[in-house]
């Protein structure tokens, strides 16, 4: 069953149509990849899914509830969490404090990252558990700005998963990572797969084709193709291209 469904999403910025008509769905527990050339509308579509951009037309349903036009904080509360192309961490705070600030029980007690140092032990433990999941438990007390790029990427995912989302949206998670970093991230996503519903925009085709259950190709503000990695590879031009190598 679809956990999230977007129908006929149309977005324009002034004279420019950014999303013409996007239909999309993600099933419970699925990893749904989104790929497409630069400027195709992928990030705008993510912004629509997470409430940062209100569509001019179309609807979004989350677990059967119409959430079209809900602001981003409400969508987040309903269980849609996201990472960004450009990282958004509290640089001066430790990895643990970054995760603490995202824990719902901690956040509900009044949002103040500075309070993290005096937080209750059960919250500290919960934050450590989340960090362990992304292999950052040993770096819990290192400031975010002192972590390596790959570790910061992992911490971003930890912050997103700390919110215990129903859907995790990742915007180009491998961006800027070397091959080693991509491999570690693949392992991490593999571990999260099944436990979480994941939607990821990604340019790294080997990453996407090896992990995704389904892939939607967005171009010209529309979904121009959709299918499992093996279905997409059936296309003759795909086989002739670099994409064909990821068979």
């Amino acid at each position: 069953m679809a956990l999230l469904t977007a129908k006929g999403i149309h977005v324009r910025f002034g004279d420019r149509v950014v999303l013409e008509e996007v239909d999309f769905d993600v099933r419970e527990g699925e990893f749904h990849g989104i790929m497409g050339p630069n400027g195709a509308g992928k990030t705008t579509f993510f912004n629509v899914l997470t409430g940062r951009v209100k569509p001019n037309r179309g609807s979004i349903e989350l677990a059967g509830e119409n959430v079209t036009g809900f602001p981003s904080h409400k969508i987040a509360r309903k269980g849609v969490s996201r990472s960004f192309q450009i990282m958004t961490l509290f640089d001066e705070f430790s990895a643990r404090e970054n995760v603490l600030a995202a824990l719902p029980e901690f956040r509900d007690s009044g949002f103040n990252p500075a309070k993290a140092v005096t937080a209750e032990k059960k919250w500290q433990d919960a934050a450590l558990d989340v960090l362990a999941e992304v292999n950052l438990a040993e770096k819990a007390d290192v400031k975010a700005k002192e972590l390596s790029y790959g570790e910061r990427r992992a911490l971003e995912i930890a912050v997103a998963t700390a919110q215990r989302p129903r859907i995790l949206c990742l915007d180009e998670p491998t961006s800027g990572l070397g091959s080693d970093g991509v491999r570690r991230l693949s392992d991490l996503v593999q571990r999260l797969k099944g436990k979480l519903t994941i939607v990821a925009i990604e340019h790294d085709m080997s990453f996407l084709f090896s992990l995704a259950d389904r892939i939607s190709v967005i171009h010209w503000g529309q979904v121009i193709a959709r299918g499992t990695p093996s279905e997409l590879r059936e296309n003759e031009w795909v086989r002739r291209s670099n994409l064909g190598k990821f068979a």
């Binding site: 497409g36 050339p37 190709v217 121009i224 994409l243």
Partner: peptide, 24 residues
């Protein structure tokens, strides 16, 4: 729209998008 006009779409045989574009 009834009519769709694609002005010099970027066809790059390396990336495989051509196949999806043509199907579209």
């Amino acid at each position: 729209p009834l009519v769709h006009l694609f002005d010099e779409p970027q066809f790059n045989p390396q990336d495989g998008y051509i196949g999806f574009m043509l199907d579209f």
